[in-house]
Design a protein around this nucleic acid. Structure first.
Length: 643
RNA sequence: GCUGGUGUAGCUCAGCUGGUAGAGCGGCGCAUUCGUAAUGCGUAGGUCGUAGGUUCAAAUCCUAUCACCAGCACCA
C-alpha cells in the first residue's frame, strides 16, 4: 500500500507504485489532462514516473509557479528538435530554462542568422502542434556514452563522462528527438502552447570557459499565456526607453565618443548630478569618521610590483611607454597601494586604528573592449573608495558599521531591496585557514546583523580575502556590482604596513577595501535607469523651469527666478514666445521635475502654477511657500513627492 | 578578447537586385502673445564610420579596420 497526502491533507491510497498521471486521474480525468507535473516530497517530477513510497504530493497545473520553468525547459528541447530537423549537422549541448525563458547552445560550423530564427520558430510551432509525447528513459552510463558518440553528439558524451558515477543517466525522448537531460518535463510538447518567441543568437563558450570553442546560443522567451508574453515584450520596449545611454543624451547629461573609448564626457547637467552624488557621499563618509586623501595618478611600476598588481593586474593597466630606459609609470587602477603609503608615513599605534582613509580617486583600467557598457563599465572612473586599516578583532565591528552606513546611503537614493553576494575562499589563496575562518565569519555575521540577505558565491573571493558585493539591477534586469567590502590580509604584508600594539610589538593591520556606490559613473547610470530619468528633486540637476504664458509675465518670471535662486535652487527661465503646452511638453521630455507656469494671474497674485513631472494636474502656490517646500524636499531627500 | 548584428543630417529612420542622397522631429528665420504634452510658413544641414579595392559609375558589391549594440568570457 502507498499513501499519498494531498495539499489539503487528504490521503489517497494505492495498491502499489503509481504514476503521477494515474494519481491525477484518480482525482478527476480533467485534472489529468490539465496537469503538467507532480511534486513529490518537494521534488518536481514527470507525470509518467512512478511513485513507489508514501509521500506528500501536489499536482502542478496551469498557474502554478513550477509551470514556467517546466515549459521553458520543454521549449528548449523543442527548439533543439527543430534545429536538428532543419540543420542535421548541428550538435546539441546544453539548454536550460532561465529567468524569462530559456536558451540552448548548439555546436555548428555556420552560425545561425536572424532568418534562421524565423524558420526555427516556425518549426517549433509544428512540433508543438504534433503534440509529441515527452518520455523519460533511464540509461546505462556506458550505453548512453556510446549512443551519443555514434550519433555524433560528442558534447553530450562528454557531459555523461563527467557526471559522477552514482548519477542516474536519464534521457528524454520526444518524437525522433532524444536528449540527455535530468528533467523533469511536461507530458507532451503541446503543453508549451504558443506564447514563446526566439529572441537572439549569440556566441557562448562551451562550459563557460573562454579557452574552449565557442558555441551558438539561441535565446528564447516563453510564457504560459499570450498576454504574459505580450506584457514581457512590452516591458522590454519600456526598458529600452530608460536606458541610461539614451537618457544621458536626451537629458543632456553626458556623451561618449570614439576618440575616448570607455571614458565619459560629462556635460554641465550631468556634472551637476555627479557633484550632488559626490558631495553627498563625501559628507556621509566624513560624518562616519573617514579622513579624505588624494594620491598620485601616475605611479612607478616598482610600487605595482611590490603590491602584486604588476603580476596580477598588468593586462588591465595603462602604462607609459618610455623611449629608452626611463622609468615605466602606470596610471593607477586602484587607490589601495597609495593609501598604504600614507599609512606608512610616521609610525602608527593601535590607538590610531581603525583608520578610515577615503579617496575619490580617478582610476584607469584597460577593460576588454567587449565589456564596455555606456557609463556602467568604463575605462576611467571614480570610486567612493576607502580603506579601513584595522586589527583583526575590529573586522566584525567595522563591517557592521559599514553595512549600516551602506544601507542608509542606499535608502537615501531610493534603493531598499539590496542583494548581497558573499564570495568566500577561492582555491588559490593567501593566508592561513584560521584567518580565512575569522574573516569569513566576520563578514557573514556583520552583514546579517545589518539585516542584509546574503547570496553565497562559493569560491569567488579574492585571493587576498573574502568579499561582499552589493548588487543593483539595471532597467532590463542586468545585475551590476556597486558597493563592495573586501577583507585583505595580503597587501599590508606586501607593502609592509605595521602598527605598534599595546605590548610594544609590531603588528600587521588588516585592510578592508570598501566602496558604497562603487564607481560613481556606474552608480549614476543605475540611478538614471532606476528613475527612468525622473530623478528625485535632491538629485535633479535642474529643479524647475519657469515658463511664461505670454511675455507680459517676463518681468515677474525674472523676479521669481531671483527669489528661488536666492534659496539655492537651480531654476531655468523659458521666456520664449511659444505656447504653454509646447513648453510643458518640451520640459517634460527633458525630465525637469517642476514646471512653473506664470501668466498675468500669477504675476498679480505673486504665485506660480506648479506642475510636477509625471502629473497632469497643477496647483497654484505662493512663491515663498514654494521655495520653502522645495528646499525642504531637497533637504529631506524625498524620493517620491506626493505633490 | 570571442560570436553575431549595426554604422546614412543634432535625433529617429527610409533609400529594392550599383546610376554621385530623402522624410519626420529638432535647428535657424519670419509671423503668431496663444493658460498646461506638438501654432503656421519658409530655410539651412550629410565626403552615407574610416581606409583600400572592383566598376564608366559605389551609401549600395568585395577586403581590411574602428566604434557601437546583444550575448559569452573578464570585472582586480
Amino acid at each position: 500500500m502507498i499513501a499519498l497526502t494531498l495539499p489539503d491533507g487528504a490521503v489517497r491510497e494505492f495498491d502499489g507504485p503509481v504514476s503521477g498521471f494515474d494519481v491525477a486521474k484518480s482525482i478527476s480525468s480533467s485534472l489529468a489532462k490539465k496537469s503538467f507535473a507532480i511534486i513529490v516530497n518537494g521534488e518536481v517530477r514527470d507525470l509518467g514516473r512512478e511513485i513507489e513510497t508514501d509521500a506528500t504530493i501536489e499536482i502542478v497545473t496551469k498557474g502554478h509557479e513550477e509551470v514556467l520553468p517546466l515549459i521553458r525547459h520543454d521549449c528548449a528541447h523543442v527548439m533543439a528538435e527543430a534545429v536538428q530537423e532543419l540543420y542535421p549537422d548541428t550538435q546539441v549541448t546544453i539548454g536550460p530554462s532561465i529567468e524569462n525563458g530559456f536558451y540552448y547552445d548548439f555546436a555548428r560550423k555556420t552560425p545561425f542568422t536572424p532568418d534562421d530564427l524565423v524558420k526555427i520558430e516556425k518549426k517549433m510551432h509544428e512540433i508543438i502542434n504534433r503534440n509529441e509525447k515527452i518520455e523519460r528513459e533511464v540509461w546505462d552510463r556506458n550505453e548512453a556514452i556510446k549512443f551519443f558518440l555514434d550519433k555524433g553528439e560528442d558534447y553530450k558524451a562528454e557531459i555523461i563522462r563527467d557526471l559522477p558515477e552514482t548519477e542516474t543517466i536519464t534521457c528524454y525522448r520526444q518524437g525522433a528527438f532524444i536528449d540527455l537531460c535530468r528533467g523533469p518535463h511536461s507530458p507532451s510538447t503541446g503543453k508549451i502552447g504558443k506564447a514563446f518567441k526566439l529572441m537572439k543568437v549569440a556566441g557562448a563558450y562551451w562550459r563557460g570557459n573562454s579557452d574552449n570553442e565557442m558555441l551558438q546560443r539561441i535565446y528564447g522567451t516563453c510564457w504560459e499565456t499570450q498576454e504574459q508574453l505580450d506584457a514581457y515584450l512590452h516591458m522590454l520596449e519600456e526598458a529600452e526607453k530608460r536606458d541610461h545611454r539614451r537618457l544621458g543624451r536626451e537629458m543632456d547629461l553626458f556623451h561618449m565618443q570614439e576618440e575616448a573609448q570607455g571614458s565619459v564626457f560629462w556635460h554641465d547637467k550631468g556634472w551637476k548630478l555627479y557633484r550632488k552624488v559626490e558631495n553627498y557621499i563625501r559628507d556621509r563618509l566624513s560624518n562616519a569618521g573617514y579622513q579624505e586623501v588624494r594620491t598620485p595618478q601616475l605611479v612607478d611600476r616598482v610600487l605595482w610590483e611590490k603590491s602584486g598588481h604588476w603580476e596580477k593586474f598588468r593586462e588591465n593597466m595603462f602604462t607609459t611607454a618610455p623611449d629608452s630606459d626611463e622609468k615605466v609609470l602606470a596610471l593607477k587602477p586602484m587607490n589601495c597601494p597609495c593609501h598604504v603609503q600614507i599609512f606608512r608615513m610616521g609610525s602608527k599605534s593601535y590607538r590610531d586604528l581603525p583608520l578610515r582613509m577615503a579617496e575619490f580617486g580617478c582610476c584607469h583600467r584597460n577593460e576588454p573592449s567587449g565589456g564596455l557598457h555606456g557609463i556602467m563599465r568604463v575605462r576611467q572612473f571614480i570610486q567612493d573608495d576607502a580603506h579601513i586599516f584595522c586589527t583583526e578583532d575590529q573586522i566584525v565591528s567595522e563591517t557592521k558599521i559599514f553595512c549600516d552606513l551602506l544601507k542608509s546611503v542606499y535608502k537615501d537614493f531610493g534603493f531598499t531591496d539590496i542583494v548581497v553576494k558573499f564570495s568566500d575562499r577561492p582555491e588559490v589563496r593567501a593566508g592561513s585557514d584560521e584567518i580565512w575562518d575569522k574573516a569569513e565569519n566576520a563578514l557573514r555575521e556583520a552583514s546579517e546583523a545589518a539585516g542584509l540577505k546574503l547570496e553565497i558565491n562559493p569560491g569567488e573571493g579574492a585571493f587576498y580575502g573574502p568579499k561582499l558585493e552589493f548588487v543593483l539591477r539595471d532597467a532590463i534586469g542586468r545585475d551590476w556590482q556597486c558597493g563592495t567590502l573586501q577583507a585583505d590580509f595580503v597587501l599590508p604584508e606586501r607593502l609592509d604596513a605595521t602598527y605598534m600594539g599595546e605590548d610594544g610589538e609590531k603588528y600587521r593591520p588588516v585592510m578592508l577595501h570598501r566602496a558604497i556606490l562603487g564607481s560613481l559613473e556606474r552608480f549614476i547610470g543605475i540611478l538614471i535607469e532606476n528613475y527612468a530619468g525622473r530623478l528625485p528633486l535632491w538629485l535633479s540637476p535642474v529643479h524647475a523651469v519657469i515658463c511664461t504664458i505670454t511675455n507680459e509675465a517676463d518681468d515677474y518670471a525674472r523676479e521669481v527666478k531671483e527669489a528661488l535662486a536666492a534659496k539655492g535652487l537651480n531654476v531655468e527661465l523659458d521666456l520664449r514666445n511659444e505656447k504653454i503646452s509646447y513648453k510643458v511638453r518640451e520640459h517634460s521630455h527633458a525630465k525637469i521635475p517642476l514646471i512653473l507656469a506664470l501668466g498675468k494671474r500669477e504675476a498679480e497674485e505673486k504665485t506660480a502654477s506648479v506642475r510636477r513631472l509625471g502629473f497632469k494636474h497643477q496647483k497654484t502656490v505662493a512663491i515663498a511657500d514654494l521655495a520653502e517646500d522645495m528646499v525642504r524636499e531637497i533637504q529631506d531627500r524625498v524620493i517620491e513627492a506626493d505633490f
